[in-house]
Simulated scan of single mutants.
Amino acid sequence: MNQNAPEPVKGVFFGLASYGIWGCFPLFFALFEGIPSWEILIHRVVWSCVFLALVITFMRRWSVVSIALAEPKRLGRVLVCAVLIAINWVTYIYSVESNNVFQASLGYFLTPLINVALGMIILKEQISRAQGVAVAIATVAILLQLATLGTVPYLSLILAFSFGTYGLIRKQVPLDGLSGLFVETLLLMPFGLLAFGVLSQLDLSHFTENRESTLLLIASGILTAIPLLFFAGAARRLRLATVGFLMYINPTIQFLIALLVFNEPLKPSQLITFVLIWCSLALYSWSIWKGRAKPV
């Protein structure tokens, strides 16, 4: 990417990268056969923190982290972000392990609506008439999907609200993406290490079960940190509503993986929902392109 590119262009690049990686996550977490979602969460926290510490050391950014840790008021929102992202992580892993990738996909289709609502209500962001129509189409699609499930999709709702709220608060944290993400995982690190120690003491840990499990659990932290860094870069450069609609890339990839790789059954109403959402995305993208001289 051109380092001299405008900030909104960089933001779009970061958004595409983060959502593309996230979209392929079901393929990765499907490899953790027999390892419970909460144990994977523990290692995601621990190894993300370790990986980010190495990155910060390499980039010589410890001064920024020290300043952040010295300001308790700043840490309050960062801690909220950490808790929200932990909830999102464990719910998503459980969705994949329990063969509910379509529910995970629905949750991330729903998240942009939460982003738009929060952006309008809390950040007072304005949207054009065409963007409003796009939101309305997406809302109809999501309501159709919710109605055809026959039950309250708890996994979808938890994923949507946890990540949508995370995006809002993360946008308001006065920390760059790398430092902010490291502090988030650092705040969760004591709980992760404590849980890891308890599991090891009780001989319930899968970490040393075999080489494959060890490498997968370590890789979960690295692959967790990379797209979140991209997302933080996008969130700080783009309007929350734009970040939200870029997010359709993630659930679309998950949708296709659930259909073509995991062979989850596809109902006609789900296909209609998919088409409607892509129509709303096309309309919103056209609106952004038409008003490209305005900040995004």
Score class of each variant (00 low, 15 high):
residue 43 H to S: 08
residue 44 R to G: 03
residue 44 R to Q: 04
residue 45 V to T: 13
residue 45 V to P: 12
residue 46 V to K: 08
residue 46 V to D: 10
residue 47 W to E: 03
residue 47 W to H: 02
residue 48 S to H: 05
residue 49 C to L: 06
residue 49 C to H: 08
residue 49 C to Q: 07
residue 49 C to T: 09
residue 50 V to F: 09
residue 50 V to H: 03
residue 51 F to N: 03
residue 51 F to E: 02
residue 52 L to G: 03
residue 52 L to S: 07
residue 53 A to R: 05
residue 53 A to Q: 03
residue 54 L to G: 14
residue 54 L to T: 11
residue 54 L to N: 06
residue 55 V to F: 09
residue 56 I to G: 04
residue 56 I to L: 13
residue 56 I to N: 06
residue 56 I to H: 06
residue 57 T to L: 14
residue 58 F to G: 08
residue 58 F to K: 12
residue 58 F to L: 15
residue 60 R to Q: 13
residue 61 R to S: 11
residue 61 R to E: 14
residue 61 R to Q: 13
residue 62 W to D: 06
residue 62 W to T: 11
residue 63 S to P: 05
residue 63 S to V: 13
residue 63 S to R: 14
residue 64 V to D: 14
residue 64 V to G: 10
residue 65 V to Q: 04
residue 65 V to D: 06
residue 65 V to R: 04
residue 66 S to Y: 11
residue 67 I to T: 15
residue 67 I to A: 15
residue 68 A to L: 07
residue 69 L to M: 13
residue 69 L to F: 08
residue 69 L to T: 10
residue 69 L to S: 08
residue 69 L to V: 11
residue 70 A to R: 15
residue 70 A to I: 06
residue 71 E to Y: 11
residue 71 E to R: 15
residue 72 P to F: 10
residue 72 P to I: 09
residue 72 P to M: 07
residue 73 K to Y: 09
residue 74 R to A: 11
residue 74 R to D: 10
residue 75 L to Y: 04
residue 76 G to K: 14
residue 76 G to V: 14
residue 76 G to T: 12
residue 77 R to T: 12
residue 77 R to K: 13
residue 78 V to G: 01
residue 78 V to L: 04
residue 79 L to Y: 12
residue 79 L to I: 09
residue 79 L to M: 13
residue 80 V to R: 10
residue 81 C to I: 01
residue 81 C to W: 08
residue 81 C to P: 04
residue 83 V to R: 02
residue 83 V to Y: 07
residue 83 V to G: 01
residue 83 V to N: 01
residue 84 L to A: 02
residue 84 L to C: 02
residue 84 L to T: 02
residue 84 L to G: 04
residue 86 A to S: 14
residue 87 I to S: 13
residue 87 I to C: 14
residue 88 N to E: 03
residue 89 W to L: 03
residue 89 W to E: 07
residue 90 V to P: 01
residue 91 T to Q: 05
residue 91 T to D: 10
residue 93 I to F: 10
residue 93 I to N: 06
residue 93 I to T: 02
residue 94 Y to L: 12
residue 94 Y to F: 14
residue 94 Y to I: 11
residue 95 S to K: 02
residue 95 S to G: 14
residue 96 V to L: 01
residue 97 E to K: 13
residue 98 S to I: 03
residue 98 S to D: 10
residue 99 N to L: 08
residue 99 N to I: 02
residue 100 N to V: 05
residue 100 N to Y: 10
residue 100 N to H: 15
residue 100 N to P: 09
residue 101 V to H: 06
residue 101 V to R: 05
residue 101 V to Y: 07
residue 101 V to I: 12
residue 102 F to L: 14
residue 102 F to E: 05
residue 102 F to G: 11
residue 103 Q to N: 10
residue 104 A to M: 01
residue 104 A to S: 11
residue 104 A to K: 04
residue 105 S to Y: 00
residue 105 S to H: 01
residue 106 L to Y: 01
residue 106 L to H: 05
residue 106 L to F: 04
residue 107 G to F: 00
residue 107 G to N: 01
residue 109 F to R: 00
residue 109 F to T: 00
residue 110 L to G: 10
residue 110 L to I: 12
residue 111 T to F: 09
residue 111 T to R: 10
residue 112 P to C: 01
residue 114 I to A: 05
residue 114 I to C: 06
residue 114 I to N: 01
residue 115 N to G: 00
residue 116 V to K: 00
residue 116 V to S: 00
residue 117 A to K: 03
residue 119 G to A: 07
residue 119 G to Y: 05
residue 120 M to S: 05
residue 120 M to Q: 05
residue 120 M to E: 00
residue 120 M to V: 10
